[in-house]
Amino acid sequence: MADIDDFLAHLAIERRTSAHTLDAYRRDLAALSAWADTHGIALIALHTEQLRAFIADEHRRGLSPKSLQRRLSACRSFYRWLLRHGRIAASPAAAIRAPKAPRKLPQVLDVDEAARLVEVPTDVPLGVRDRALLELFYSSGLRLSELCALRWHDLQLDDGLVTVLGKGGKQRRVPVGSHARAALAAWREERPASMDAPVFPGRNGPITPRAVQLRLRQLALRQGLSKRVHPHLLRHSFASHVLESSGDLRGVQELLGHADIATTQIYTHLDFQHLAKVYDAAHPRARRKRGAGDA
């Protein structure tokens, strides 16, 4: 386990990997370590066929293709790190492919639903804060971790920009819309704070991701939304709506902070779904509508 601990420390300190990803890697590598111990194999002596047997055993145990992909991704990263540091001569994970998982399109809010959610009343307890939080979330497409970590000095409201530290410690600047700027200004006026203070404070420092998740669920119910609303849904909605209006996939990739444009391309499928609905509804020969006399 010493090698695993060193690898996780590298991710946390040098790569600045998120706590959520670290926990996932820790679980995945702990499962591999337990399997290797059961079979009397040292992790640094593991061969490709043995790693393939581990993945097969996990599959028989009921893990989904998506979970197996994550397991194998953690193994690849771990053995690549061991190889780079001279602790092994070759990676057993290099030639192994995980089973394909069906690609599930993310659910999004339509424009009217998004507007209904973010326009929460401000004349109730925490209303001003909630409006600022939701407007910024939807306006800039931030990750939950990015929003929670935000400090006032990261916002340039006069210029309509926010600077965030994304995955892998990569910094990017994202526009902030006029509604979000007004909501943030109102929030700062209600609760003045230093430039180093969290934009959205919690009880002990910045607001926690869990607190945001729970609050968002409460607000969605209060606003009469039937969909299950979670923080990433606002990011999905932001991406889908920007792409739908602009058609600029590269631009959306930069706004979201995706390292690989393939990650962003899922939103082209969402956009096509929208266009297909428009076509079916509007084109006279797109699809025959059922009438009263149809069987």
Rank of each mutant, 00 (worst) to 15 (best):
A211K: 00
A185E: 15
A193T: 09
P206A: 09
L184F: 08
D196M: 10
P209T: 11
R210G: 14
D196P: 00
P209V: 10
P206R: 09
A185M: 14
V176T: 12
P209L: 07
A197W: 01
R191E: 12
P209Y: 11
V199Y: 02
A186T: 14
I207L: 07
S194E: 15
R210C: 03
P192W: 13
G202V: 02
P198H: 05
R203F: 02
L184P: 02
A193L: 02
I207N: 01
P192C: 14
P175V: 08
G202K: 04
S178N: 08
A197K: 02
A180E: 06
A211N: 06
F200D: 01
R191C: 11
G177D: 02
P175W: 07
A182D: 10
P198Q: 05
G177E: 06
P175F: 05
A185P: 00
T208L: 04
E189D: 11
I207W: 01
V199R: 02
A180G: 07
A185G: 04
E190W: 14
H179M: 07
G205A: 08
W187K: 08
T208R: 05
R191K: 14
H179C: 05
P192A: 15
R203T: 09
S178V: 14
G205Q: 08
G202T: 04
L184Y: 05
A193R: 11
A186S: 13
E189K: 15
I207T: 07
D196C: 02
V176M: 13
H179G: 08
R210I: 13
R203I: 06
R188S: 04
R203P: 00
E189L: 14
P198F: 02
I207K: 01
H179P: 00
H179R: 11
V176Q: 12
E190V: 00
I207G: 01
P198A: 05
A197M: 03
P209G: 15
I207Y: 02
R188G: 01
T208W: 00
R191L: 11
A183Q: 06
R191S: 13
A197I: 07
S178P: 08
A186H: 09
P175D: 06
P201K: 07
D196T: 11
P209E: 13
N204W: 08
L184Q: 07
G177I: 10
L184C: 08
A180I: 07
D196Y: 11
P198E: 02
R210K: 13
S194Q: 12
I207D: 01
A193W: 01
G177V: 09
G205L: 06
R203L: 09
A180S: 10
V176C: 11
A182Y: 03
V176F: 11
N204A: 11
H179I: 05
A182H: 05
A211Y: 00
R181W: 08
N204E: 10
A182N: 09
V176E: 10
S194I: 14
S178E: 15
A211H: 07
R191I: 08
R191D: 08
R188H: 15
